[in-house]
Write a protein that binds this DNA or RNA. Structure first.
Length: 419
RNA sequence: GCGGCCGUAGCUCAGCAAGGUUAGAGCACCUGGUUGUGGUCCAGGAUGUCGCCGGUUCGAAUCCGGUCGGUCGCCCCA
Protein backbone atom coordinates (compact mmCIF):
# COMPACT_ATOMS: atom_id res chain seq x y z
CA UNK A 1 0.00 0.00 0.00
CA UNK A 2 1.46 3.36 -0.92
CA UNK A 3 1.73 6.26 1.48
CA UNK A 4 -1.85 7.23 2.17
CA UNK A 5 -1.03 10.93 2.38
CA UNK A 6 -0.39 10.73 -1.35
CA UNK A 7 -3.73 10.94 -3.09
CA UNK A 8 -2.65 9.99 -6.61
CA UNK A 9 -1.56 6.72 -8.04
CA UNK A 10 -0.77 5.67 -11.59
CA UNK A 11 -4.01 5.34 -13.62
CA UNK A 12 -5.53 1.86 -14.02
CA UNK A 13 -3.63 -0.34 -16.40
CA UNK A 14 -0.50 1.80 -16.23
CA UNK A 15 2.55 1.11 -14.15
CA UNK A 16 5.73 2.69 -12.97
CA UNK A 17 8.88 0.99 -14.08
CA UNK A 18 11.31 0.97 -11.19
CA UNK A 19 14.48 -0.87 -10.19
CA UNK A 20 15.33 -3.63 -10.45
CA UNK A 21 12.87 -4.25 -13.29
CA UNK A 22 13.76 -0.98 -14.99
CA UNK A 23 17.34 -2.23 -15.44
CA UNK A 24 16.01 -5.24 -17.29
CA UNK A 25 13.65 -3.09 -19.31
CA UNK A 26 16.46 -0.83 -20.50
CA UNK A 27 18.73 -3.73 -21.29
CA UNK A 28 15.99 -5.36 -23.37
CA UNK A 29 15.23 -2.21 -25.35
CA UNK A 30 18.91 -1.69 -26.02
CA UNK A 31 19.38 -5.28 -27.07
CA UNK A 32 16.44 -4.98 -29.48
CA UNK A 33 17.44 -1.72 -31.12
CA UNK A 34 21.06 -2.81 -31.23
CA UNK A 35 20.31 -6.07 -33.02
CA UNK A 36 17.98 -4.36 -35.48
CA UNK A 37 20.47 -1.61 -36.27
CA UNK A 38 23.15 -4.22 -36.94
CA UNK A 39 20.91 -5.58 -39.68
CA UNK A 40 20.54 -2.18 -41.29
CA UNK A 41 17.30 -1.05 -39.66
CA UNK A 42 17.26 2.67 -38.84
CA UNK A 43 15.68 3.85 -35.59
CA UNK A 44 12.65 6.11 -36.02
CA UNK A 45 10.24 7.78 -33.66
CA UNK A 46 6.77 8.99 -34.56
CA UNK A 47 4.55 11.21 -32.37
CA UNK A 48 2.70 9.57 -29.51
CA UNK A 49 -0.57 10.62 -31.17
CA UNK A 50 -1.82 10.83 -34.75
CA UNK A 51 -4.91 12.02 -36.54
CA UNK A 52 -7.53 9.44 -35.66
CA UNK A 53 -7.99 8.66 -39.34
CA UNK A 54 -4.50 7.18 -39.57
CA UNK A 55 -5.55 4.33 -37.34
CA UNK A 56 -9.18 4.18 -38.41
CA UNK A 57 -8.18 3.69 -42.04
CA UNK A 58 -4.83 2.03 -41.49
CA UNK A 59 -5.70 -0.50 -38.82
CA UNK A 60 -9.24 -0.95 -40.07
CA UNK A 61 -12.65 0.10 -38.82
CA UNK A 62 -13.64 -3.49 -38.27
CA UNK A 63 -10.90 -4.29 -35.82
CA UNK A 64 -11.49 -4.45 -32.11
CA UNK A 65 -8.56 -2.13 -31.51
CA UNK A 66 -10.07 0.71 -33.50
CA UNK A 67 -13.61 -0.09 -32.54
CA UNK A 68 -13.32 0.34 -28.79
CA UNK A 69 -9.75 0.43 -27.53
CA UNK A 70 -8.42 3.76 -28.74
CA UNK A 71 -7.67 6.78 -26.58
CA UNK A 72 -9.24 9.43 -28.79
CA UNK A 73 -9.56 13.12 -27.92
CA UNK A 74 -10.05 16.51 -29.56
CA UNK A 75 -7.40 19.18 -29.54
CA UNK A 76 -8.09 22.90 -29.31
CA UNK A 77 -8.53 23.14 -33.07
CA UNK A 78 -11.26 20.52 -32.97
CA UNK A 79 -9.09 17.86 -34.62
CA UNK A 80 -9.72 14.27 -33.59
CA UNK A 81 -6.47 12.77 -32.37
CA UNK A 82 -5.64 9.32 -31.03
CA UNK A 83 -2.81 7.98 -28.89
CA UNK A 84 -1.19 5.33 -31.06
CA UNK A 85 -2.50 1.84 -30.29
CA UNK A 86 0.19 0.21 -32.46
CA UNK A 87 3.19 1.25 -34.46
CA UNK A 88 2.82 0.09 -38.04
CA UNK A 89 0.16 2.49 -39.31
CA UNK A 90 2.01 5.46 -37.79
CA UNK A 91 5.30 4.44 -39.37
CA UNK A 92 3.61 4.01 -42.75
CA UNK A 93 2.05 7.47 -42.39
CA UNK A 94 5.53 8.84 -41.71
CA UNK A 95 7.00 7.08 -44.75
CA UNK A 96 4.30 8.41 -47.06
CA UNK A 97 4.38 11.94 -45.64
CA UNK A 98 8.11 12.20 -46.35
CA UNK A 99 7.96 10.23 -49.60
CA UNK A 100 10.59 7.86 -48.32
CA UNK A 101 9.30 5.25 -50.76
CA UNK A 102 10.98 7.25 -53.54
CA UNK A 103 14.39 6.47 -52.11
CA UNK A 104 16.12 3.12 -52.09
CA UNK A 105 13.88 0.22 -51.17
CA UNK A 106 13.21 -1.58 -49.00
CA UNK A 107 13.05 0.93 -46.17
CA UNK A 108 14.25 -0.78 -43.04
CA UNK A 109 13.07 0.90 -39.85
CA UNK A 110 12.88 0.02 -36.17
CA UNK A 111 11.39 1.57 -33.06
CA UNK A 112 10.90 1.23 -29.33
CA UNK A 113 7.85 3.22 -28.31
CA UNK A 114 4.93 3.47 -25.93
CA UNK A 115 1.53 2.28 -27.18
CA UNK A 116 -1.90 2.93 -25.67
CA UNK A 117 -5.03 0.81 -25.65
CA UNK A 118 -8.11 0.98 -23.44
CA UNK A 119 -8.61 -2.61 -22.45
CA UNK A 120 -9.24 -4.33 -19.18
CA UNK A 121 -5.76 -4.74 -17.69
CA UNK A 122 -4.47 -8.11 -16.61
CA UNK A 123 -1.24 -10.01 -16.43
CA UNK A 124 0.98 -9.06 -19.36
CA UNK A 125 -1.54 -6.54 -20.65
CA UNK A 126 -1.48 -2.85 -19.88
CA UNK A 127 -3.16 0.29 -21.16
CA UNK A 128 0.17 2.01 -21.65
CA UNK A 129 2.86 -0.40 -22.74
CA UNK A 130 6.00 -0.56 -24.80
CA UNK A 131 6.67 -2.29 -28.05
CA UNK A 132 9.93 -2.82 -29.88
CA UNK A 133 9.52 -3.62 -33.53
CA UNK A 134 10.78 -3.36 -37.06
CA UNK A 135 9.19 -2.57 -40.40
CA UNK A 136 10.62 -3.42 -43.81
CA UNK A 137 8.69 -1.48 -46.43
CA UNK A 138 8.86 -1.67 -50.20
CA UNK A 139 9.81 -5.24 -51.03
CA UNK A 140 7.58 -8.16 -51.94
CA UNK A 141 10.47 -10.61 -51.96
CA UNK A 142 10.15 -13.67 -49.73
CA UNK A 143 13.71 -13.04 -48.61
CA UNK A 144 12.66 -9.94 -46.69
CA UNK A 145 9.96 -11.98 -44.94
CA UNK A 146 12.63 -14.46 -43.94
CA UNK A 147 15.03 -11.75 -42.77
CA UNK A 148 12.40 -10.07 -40.62
CA UNK A 149 11.33 -13.35 -39.04
CA UNK A 150 14.89 -14.44 -38.45
CA UNK A 151 15.75 -11.11 -36.79
CA UNK A 152 12.78 -11.41 -34.48
CA UNK A 153 13.59 -14.98 -33.60
CA UNK A 154 17.22 -14.32 -32.82
CA UNK A 155 16.32 -11.30 -30.74
CA UNK A 156 13.86 -13.33 -28.67
CA UNK A 157 16.46 -16.04 -28.16
CA UNK A 158 19.06 -13.49 -27.09
CA UNK A 159 16.48 -12.01 -24.76
CA UNK A 160 16.27 -15.42 -22.99
CA UNK A 161 12.60 -15.93 -23.72
CA UNK A 162 12.33 -19.47 -25.15
CA UNK A 163 9.99 -18.49 -28.01
CA UNK A 164 7.91 -20.82 -30.18
CA UNK A 165 7.41 -19.53 -33.72
CA UNK A 166 3.99 -20.00 -35.31
CA UNK A 167 3.68 -19.37 -39.04
CA UNK A 168 0.80 -18.98 -41.45
CA UNK A 169 -0.25 -17.24 -44.62
CA UNK A 170 -3.57 -15.42 -44.76
CA UNK A 171 -3.39 -14.68 -48.49
CA UNK A 172 -4.71 -11.49 -49.99
CA UNK A 173 -8.28 -10.14 -50.08
CA UNK A 174 -9.38 -11.01 -53.66
CA UNK A 175 -12.03 -13.62 -54.52
CA UNK A 176 -9.43 -15.98 -55.90
CA UNK A 177 -7.72 -16.08 -52.53
CA UNK A 178 -8.83 -15.08 -49.00
CA UNK A 179 -12.10 -13.61 -50.29
CA UNK A 180 -13.25 -16.90 -51.71
CA UNK A 181 -12.01 -18.75 -48.67
CA UNK A 182 -13.99 -16.49 -46.33
CA UNK A 183 -17.19 -17.35 -48.24
CA UNK A 184 -16.50 -21.04 -47.72
CA UNK A 185 -15.65 -20.52 -44.06
CA UNK A 186 -18.85 -18.54 -43.56
CA UNK A 187 -20.99 -21.27 -45.06
CA UNK A 188 -19.24 -23.83 -42.91
CA UNK A 189 -19.84 -21.76 -39.79
CA UNK A 190 -23.51 -21.28 -40.71
CA UNK A 191 -23.94 -24.99 -41.21
CA UNK A 192 -22.42 -25.66 -37.79
CA UNK A 193 -23.93 -22.66 -36.05
CA UNK A 194 -25.70 -24.76 -33.44
CA UNK A 195 -22.42 -26.33 -32.35
CA UNK A 196 -20.73 -23.01 -31.68
CA UNK A 197 -20.54 -21.58 -28.21
CA UNK A 198 -22.97 -18.70 -27.71
CA UNK A 199 -20.47 -15.79 -27.77
CA UNK A 200 -18.91 -17.13 -30.97
CA UNK A 201 -22.05 -17.23 -33.12
CA UNK A 202 -22.27 -13.51 -33.71
CA UNK A 203 -18.58 -13.28 -34.43
CA UNK A 204 -18.82 -16.06 -37.02
CA UNK A 205 -20.77 -13.64 -39.20
CA UNK A 206 -18.91 -10.40 -38.59
CA UNK A 207 -15.37 -11.70 -38.46
CA UNK A 208 -15.30 -15.38 -39.40
CA UNK A 209 -11.51 -15.71 -39.23
CA UNK A 210 -11.52 -14.79 -35.57
CA UNK A 211 -13.62 -17.86 -34.76
CA UNK A 212 -10.31 -19.70 -34.72
CA UNK A 213 -9.22 -17.63 -31.73
CA UNK A 214 -12.03 -18.93 -29.56
CA UNK A 215 -11.16 -20.70 -26.34
CA UNK A 216 -14.60 -22.32 -26.01
CA UNK A 217 -14.22 -26.12 -26.14
CA UNK A 218 -17.42 -26.58 -28.14
CA UNK A 219 -16.31 -24.04 -30.75
CA UNK A 220 -12.88 -25.58 -31.01
CA UNK A 221 -14.48 -28.99 -31.53
CA UNK A 222 -16.89 -27.63 -34.14
CA UNK A 223 -14.02 -26.09 -36.06
CA UNK A 224 -12.13 -29.37 -36.20
CA UNK A 225 -13.09 -29.91 -39.86
CA UNK A 226 -13.39 -26.28 -40.90
CA UNK A 227 -11.77 -25.32 -44.20
CA UNK A 228 -8.30 -23.88 -43.73
CA UNK A 229 -6.90 -20.81 -45.44
CA UNK A 230 -3.73 -22.59 -46.46
CA UNK A 231 -5.57 -24.89 -48.84
CA UNK A 232 -7.38 -21.96 -50.48
CA UNK A 233 -4.53 -19.61 -51.29
CA UNK A 234 -4.14 -18.32 -54.85
CA UNK A 235 -1.10 -19.53 -56.78
CA UNK A 236 0.94 -16.38 -56.17
CA UNK A 237 0.30 -16.36 -52.42
CA UNK A 238 0.87 -20.09 -52.15
CA UNK A 239 4.18 -19.74 -53.98
CA UNK A 240 5.26 -16.82 -51.81
CA UNK A 241 4.44 -18.76 -48.65
CA UNK A 242 6.34 -21.81 -49.83
CA UNK A 243 9.41 -19.77 -50.65
CA UNK A 244 9.34 -18.12 -47.22
CA UNK A 245 9.19 -21.55 -45.61
CA UNK A 246 12.11 -22.78 -47.71
CA UNK A 247 14.23 -19.80 -46.69
CA UNK A 248 13.39 -20.28 -43.02
CA UNK A 249 14.44 -23.89 -43.38
CA UNK A 250 17.72 -22.75 -44.93
CA UNK A 251 18.19 -20.54 -41.89
CA UNK A 252 17.64 -23.61 -39.68
CA UNK A 253 14.84 -21.81 -37.94
CA UNK A 254 12.21 -24.00 -36.26
CA UNK A 255 8.67 -22.98 -37.00
CA UNK A 256 5.27 -24.56 -36.55
CA UNK A 257 2.71 -24.17 -39.32
CA UNK A 258 -0.44 -22.91 -37.70
CA UNK A 259 -3.23 -22.57 -40.27
CA UNK A 260 -5.54 -21.23 -37.56
CA UNK A 261 -3.28 -18.28 -36.78
CA UNK A 262 -5.07 -15.04 -37.65
CA UNK A 263 -4.25 -11.40 -37.06
CA UNK A 264 -6.16 -8.79 -35.12
CA UNK A 265 -5.50 -5.88 -37.41
CA UNK A 266 -7.15 -5.59 -40.81
CA UNK A 267 -4.14 -4.61 -42.88
CA UNK A 268 -2.34 -7.94 -42.76
CA UNK A 269 -1.83 -10.04 -45.91
CA UNK A 270 0.11 -13.16 -46.78
CA UNK A 271 2.77 -14.06 -44.20
CA UNK A 272 1.49 -13.97 -40.62
CA UNK A 273 3.59 -15.07 -37.68
CA UNK A 274 3.65 -14.98 -33.94
CA UNK A 275 6.00 -16.02 -31.18
CA UNK A 276 4.37 -17.46 -28.09
CA UNK A 277 5.55 -18.22 -24.59
CA UNK A 278 3.98 -20.22 -21.79
CA UNK A 279 4.96 -17.77 -19.04
CA UNK A 280 2.43 -15.07 -19.78
CA UNK A 281 -0.69 -16.13 -17.92
CA UNK A 282 -3.66 -16.16 -20.21
CA UNK A 283 -1.80 -14.05 -22.74
CA UNK A 284 0.45 -16.12 -24.93
CA UNK A 285 1.63 -13.79 -27.67
CA UNK A 286 5.13 -12.46 -27.08
CA UNK A 287 5.55 -10.87 -30.43
CA UNK A 288 3.36 -10.75 -33.49
CA UNK A 289 3.72 -9.61 -37.04
CA UNK A 290 3.03 -10.10 -40.65
CA UNK A 291 2.98 -8.71 -44.14
CA UNK A 292 0.75 -5.71 -44.85
CA UNK A 293 0.67 -5.16 -48.59
CA UNK A 294 -2.57 -3.17 -48.50
CA UNK A 295 -1.71 -0.66 -45.80
CA UNK A 296 -0.08 2.03 -47.93
CA UNK A 297 -3.06 2.25 -50.23
CA UNK A 298 -5.48 2.31 -47.31
CA UNK A 299 -3.67 5.48 -46.22
CA UNK A 300 -3.87 6.96 -49.71
CA UNK A 301 -0.36 5.99 -50.76
CA UNK A 302 0.95 3.99 -53.72
CA UNK A 303 1.20 0.23 -53.90
CA UNK A 304 3.86 -0.47 -51.35
CA UNK A 305 4.19 -3.80 -49.61
CA UNK A 306 5.73 -4.21 -46.22
CA UNK A 307 6.33 -6.62 -43.40
CA UNK A 308 7.15 -6.18 -39.74
CA UNK A 309 6.59 -7.29 -36.19
CA UNK A 310 6.13 -5.80 -32.74
CA UNK A 311 7.09 -7.29 -29.38
CA UNK A 312 5.47 -6.32 -26.09
CA UNK A 313 8.37 -5.38 -23.83
CA UNK A 314 6.42 -6.08 -20.62
CA UNK A 315 5.64 -9.55 -21.94
CA UNK A 316 9.27 -10.13 -22.78
CA UNK A 317 10.12 -9.30 -19.18
CA UNK A 318 7.54 -11.80 -17.96
CA UNK A 319 8.78 -14.51 -20.30
CA UNK A 320 12.47 -14.14 -19.53
CA UNK A 321 14.13 -17.15 -17.96
CA UNK A 322 17.78 -16.15 -18.18
CA UNK A 323 20.10 -14.25 -15.84
CA UNK A 324 19.44 -10.60 -15.08
CA UNK A 325 21.29 -7.75 -16.69
CA UNK A 326 24.74 -7.09 -15.24
CA UNK A 327 25.36 -3.79 -13.45
CA UNK A 328 27.22 -1.08 -15.35
CA UNK A 329 28.86 -0.05 -12.12
CA UNK A 330 32.13 -1.95 -11.99
CA UNK A 331 33.87 -0.03 -9.21
CA UNK A 332 32.75 1.32 -5.83
CA UNK A 333 34.96 3.82 -4.07
CA UNK A 334 35.02 3.55 -0.28
CA UNK A 335 36.20 6.69 1.51
CA UNK A 336 37.02 6.72 5.22
CA UNK A 337 37.52 10.40 6.06
CA UNK A 338 36.40 13.81 4.85
CA UNK A 339 39.69 14.24 3.04
CA UNK A 340 39.27 10.83 1.44
CA UNK A 341 35.74 11.72 0.36
CA UNK A 342 37.05 14.69 -1.61
CA UNK A 343 39.65 12.48 -3.22
CA UNK A 344 37.02 9.84 -3.93
CA UNK A 345 34.79 12.25 -5.79
CA UNK A 346 37.69 13.31 -8.02
CA UNK A 347 38.70 9.71 -8.58
CA UNK A 348 35.12 8.82 -9.53
CA UNK A 349 35.07 11.65 -12.04
CA UNK A 350 38.28 10.60 -13.77
CA UNK A 351 37.32 6.90 -13.79
CA UNK A 352 33.99 7.74 -15.35
CA UNK A 353 35.72 9.88 -17.98
CA UNK A 354 37.84 6.88 -18.78
CA UNK A 355 34.70 4.82 -19.33
CA UNK A 356 34.82 2.93 -16.03
CA UNK A 357 31.42 2.77 -14.37
CA UNK A 358 31.73 3.65 -10.70
CA UNK A 359 29.72 4.73 -7.68
CA UNK A 360 30.40 5.97 -4.17
CA UNK A 361 28.75 6.79 -0.86
CA UNK A 362 26.91 10.08 -0.29
CA UNK A 363 25.40 9.29 3.10
CA UNK A 364 28.50 9.42 5.27
CA UNK A 365 28.17 5.73 5.96
CA UNK A 366 30.94 3.99 7.86
CA UNK A 367 33.30 1.49 6.32
CA UNK A 368 30.97 -1.42 6.90
CA UNK A 369 28.01 0.40 5.42
CA UNK A 370 30.01 1.40 2.37
CA UNK A 371 31.23 -2.14 1.79
CA UNK A 372 27.65 -3.28 1.95
CA UNK A 373 26.59 -0.62 -0.51
CA UNK A 374 29.48 -1.61 -2.77
CA UNK A 375 28.10 -5.12 -3.03
CA UNK A 376 24.62 -3.78 -3.55
CA UNK A 377 25.82 -1.61 -6.43
CA UNK A 378 26.89 -4.68 -8.36
CA UNK A 379 30.51 -3.55 -8.52
CA UNK A 380 33.27 -6.10 -8.92
CA UNK A 381 35.92 -3.85 -7.37
CA UNK A 382 36.05 -1.80 -4.20
CA UNK A 383 38.65 0.97 -4.11
CA UNK A 384 39.40 1.83 -0.48
CA UNK A 385 40.73 5.25 0.48
CA UNK A 386 41.70 5.96 4.09
CA UNK A 387 44.13 8.41 5.63
CA UNK A 388 47.00 6.00 5.26
CA UNK A 389 46.30 5.54 1.54
CA UNK A 390 46.02 9.30 1.04
CA UNK A 391 49.43 9.85 2.62
CA UNK A 392 51.06 7.30 0.39
CA UNK A 393 49.01 8.09 -2.71
CA UNK A 394 47.79 4.55 -3.13
CA UNK A 395 44.47 2.73 -2.63
CA UNK A 396 43.27 -0.61 -1.39
CA UNK A 397 41.88 -2.50 -4.36
CA UNK A 398 39.60 -5.32 -3.35
CA UNK A 399 37.99 -7.82 -5.67
CA UNK A 400 34.54 -8.30 -4.17
CA UNK A 401 34.07 -11.67 -5.81
CA UNK A 402 37.34 -13.32 -4.81
CA UNK A 403 37.92 -11.17 -1.68
CA UNK A 404 41.55 -10.64 -2.74
CA UNK A 405 42.95 -7.25 -1.83
CA UNK A 406 46.13 -5.42 -2.71
CA UNK A 407 47.59 -1.92 -2.57
CA UNK A 408 47.80 -0.05 -5.85
CA UNK A 409 49.38 3.38 -6.55
CA UNK A 410 46.85 5.95 -7.76
CA UNK A 411 48.43 6.37 -11.16
CA UNK A 412 47.87 2.68 -11.89
CA UNK A 413 44.21 2.56 -10.81
CA UNK A 414 42.71 3.68 -14.08
CA UNK A 415 44.71 1.14 -16.03
CA UNK A 416 43.85 -1.66 -13.64
CA UNK A 417 40.14 -0.86 -13.74
CA UNK A 418 39.80 -0.04 -17.43
CA UNK A 419 36.98 -1.99 -19.07
C1' G B 1 -18.54 -4.00 -20.57
C1' C B 2 -18.90 -8.77 -17.31
C1' G B 3 -17.08 -12.37 -13.39
C1' G B 4 -13.65 -14.63 -9.29
C1' C B 5 -10.18 -13.38 -5.45
C1' C B 6 -7.74 -9.71 -2.36
C1' G B 7 -6.88 -4.65 0.55
C1' U B 8 -3.06 -4.91 8.09
C1' A B 9 4.74 -1.74 8.23
C1' G B 10 8.67 -0.15 2.16
C1' C B 11 7.73 -5.77 0.55
C1' U B 12 5.39 -10.84 1.64
C1' C B 13 1.81 -11.92 4.99
C1' A B 14 -0.30 -13.78 10.20
C1' G B 15 -4.29 -12.03 13.37
C1' C B 16 -10.56 -11.81 11.61
C1' A B 17 -14.68 -17.89 12.06
C1' A B 18 -16.20 -17.64 18.80
C1' G B 19 -15.41 -8.57 18.68
C1' G B 20 -11.91 -7.08 24.48
C1' U B 21 -4.78 -5.75 27.43
C1' U B 22 0.16 -1.05 24.45
C1' A B 23 -1.61 -4.66 16.43
C1' G B 24 2.48 -8.92 15.15
C1' A B 25 6.26 -11.96 12.17
C1' G B 26 9.75 -12.57 8.28
C1' C B 27 12.38 -9.84 4.60
C1' A B 28 14.41 -5.06 3.57
C1' C B 29 16.51 -0.43 5.85
C1' C B 30 19.72 2.12 9.76
C1' U B 31 23.18 1.68 14.14
C1' G B 32 26.40 -1.16 17.15
C1' G B 33 29.24 -5.81 18.51
C1' U B 34 34.35 -5.47 14.82
C1' U B 35 37.25 3.18 16.47
C1' G B 36 39.93 0.03 8.51
C1' U B 37 36.78 -4.47 5.27
C1' G B 38 30.54 -6.82 2.30
C1' G B 39 27.09 -11.48 1.64
C1' U B 40 26.88 -15.35 8.04
C1' C B 41 25.81 -14.47 13.33
C1' C B 42 24.17 -11.50 17.68
C1' A B 43 21.97 -6.96 19.95
C1' G B 44 19.25 -2.65 19.22
C1' G B 45 16.46 1.15 16.21
C1' A B 46 12.97 3.51 12.81
C1' U B 47 8.48 2.54 10.12
C1' G B 48 1.12 1.53 10.59
C1' U B 49 -5.18 7.02 10.53
C1' C B 50 -5.47 -2.34 10.04
C1' G B 51 -7.95 1.07 1.99
C1' C B 52 -12.03 4.80 2.86
C1' C B 53 -17.10 6.18 4.74
C1' G B 54 -21.04 4.82 7.61
C1' G B 55 -23.77 1.22 10.85
C1' U B 56 -24.18 -2.44 15.11
C1' U B 57 -21.79 -2.48 20.09
C1' C B 58 -19.75 -0.42 26.53
C1' G B 59 -15.83 -1.76 22.92
C1' A B 60 -14.52 -3.10 15.70
C1' A B 61 -8.36 -4.81 12.07
C1' U B 62 -12.28 -8.52 13.48
C1' C B 63 -19.53 -8.26 12.44
C1' C B 64 -22.96 -5.55 8.63
C1' G B 65 -23.72 -2.06 4.42
C1' G B 66 -21.61 0.99 0.94
C1' U B 67 -17.48 2.84 -1.65
C1' C B 68 -12.58 3.14 -3.75
C1' G B 69 -8.41 0.45 -5.27
C1' G B 70 -5.54 -3.87 -6.74
C1' U B 71 -5.16 -8.50 -9.09
C1' C B 72 -6.56 -12.67 -12.11
C1' G B 73 -9.91 -14.37 -15.86
C1' C B 74 -13.82 -13.47 -20.11
C1' C B 75 -13.66 -10.35 -24.58
C1' C B 76 -9.50 -8.75 -27.50
C1' C B 77 -4.42 -8.27 -28.24
C1' A B 78 1.99 -7.32 -27.92
Amino acid sequence: MPDRRISFRAPPGTRDLLPPESWEWQALSRLAIDSFERAGYAPVETPAFEHTEVFARGVGEGSEVVHKQMYTFSDQGGRSLTLRPEGTAAVMRMVLEHSLQRGPLPLKLCYSSAMFRQERPQKGRYRAFFQVGIEAIGSLEPSIDAEVIELGHRFLLNAETEPRLLLNSIGHPSESCRGGYLDKLRSFLRAHSSDLAEPDRQRAETNPLRSFDSKEPSTIAALEDAPLITSHLCDACRDHFQRVQDLLTDLELDFELEPRLVRGLDFYTRTAFEWVSSNLGSQSALCGGGRYDGLSQALGGPELGGIGFACGVERLLLARTGPSAPSLVGVYIVALSDEARREALMLASSLRSAGVGCDLDHSRRGLKGQMKDAVRSGATWAVILGDEELRERRAGLKNLRTQEQEQVPWHQLEKRLAP
